[in-house]
């Protein structure tokens, strides 16, 4: 099992718990859609799975490592080496070119494969845009760079939070097709947060969050 989430609870100070007794599992190469209404805790669960945030109780195990036992450096190592993230807001580094952004995560983890990067770049339609800066790209292009950056590092787990939320219908379909195709080729597992049933139906499995619980 690549990702195991067991009885996890998360609450923010002064607020009702966002997640209560949530359990979920994801195997190598498997894709899972996490759906739910706004405020249901989808993004929070994704952040917990990506070691971006800490949970109150329960346990999350990623590739055999229990996240509760990791300090800040251990979590950072995990994010660098095994996980990749695609955000709704793209979160590219604005001062780096497209080419530099694409290679960035792989270089951080010391796993830059130039041939793979070049192939990715071509497949994502970014080959001619390497010298541009993110601000000069459309939303769809920026999200393709974000996906490329994530997959260039050949992560075991790709976490995507509403990756097409900021895109129009055509761009959304195009980006999703590419992402799913590349994820399957690389053998990475995918946990994708979406509120779109249509997108969720294209993944292997689907889990629905409501009121902080998996239903």
């Amino acid at each position: 099992m690549l990702l195991s989430i067991e009885h996890v609870r998360k609450a923010y100070p002064g607020q009702r718990p966002v997640l209560q007794d949530v359990s979920l599992a994801l195997d190598h190469g498997e894709t899972l859609a996490l759906t739910g209404e706004s405020g249901s805790g989808k993004s929070t669960l994704l952040n917990l799975a990506g070691a971006l945030d800490a949970f109150d109780s329960g346990e999350i195990t990623l590739d055999g490592k229990a996240l509760s036992a990791l300090d800040d450096t251990g979590r950072a190592d995990l994010r660098r080496d095994r996980v990749a993230l695609v955000f709704q807001q793209f979160n590219l580094i604005p001062s780096l070119t497209v080419g530099q952004n694409l290679a960035f995560h792989a270089r951080l983890g010391g796993r830059l494969d130039k041939a793979w990067l070049s192939e990715l770049s071509h497949r994502l339609g970014l080959a001619d845009l390497h010298d541009r800066y993110p601000e000069n790209l459309s939303g769809g292009q920026q999200q393709r760079v974000a996906i490329g950056r994530a997959l260039a590092a050949r992560p075991k787990l790709l976490l995507a939070d509403e990756p097409t939320g900021n895109l129009d219908e055509n761009a959304s379909r195009e980006v999703l097709d590419l992402m799913l195709e590349l994820v399957r080729e690389t053998g990475a597992a995918l946990l994708l947060v979406t509120h779109s049933v249509e997108i969720a139906n294209r993944l292997d499995r689907r889990a629905h969050l409501a009121g902080g619980k998996i239903t």
Binding site: G50, L52, D72, T73, A76, D77, L78, R79, R80, D81, L85, N91, L92, I93, P94, S95, F104, H105, L108, G109
Partner: peptide, 15 residues
């Protein structure tokens, strides 16, 4: 700030 957040999200320790 955005860059710092991204760097940290990508695995760069705060220290």
């Amino acid at each position: 700030r955005g860059m710092f957040r991204t760097l940290r999200a990508l695995g760069v320790p705060l220290a």
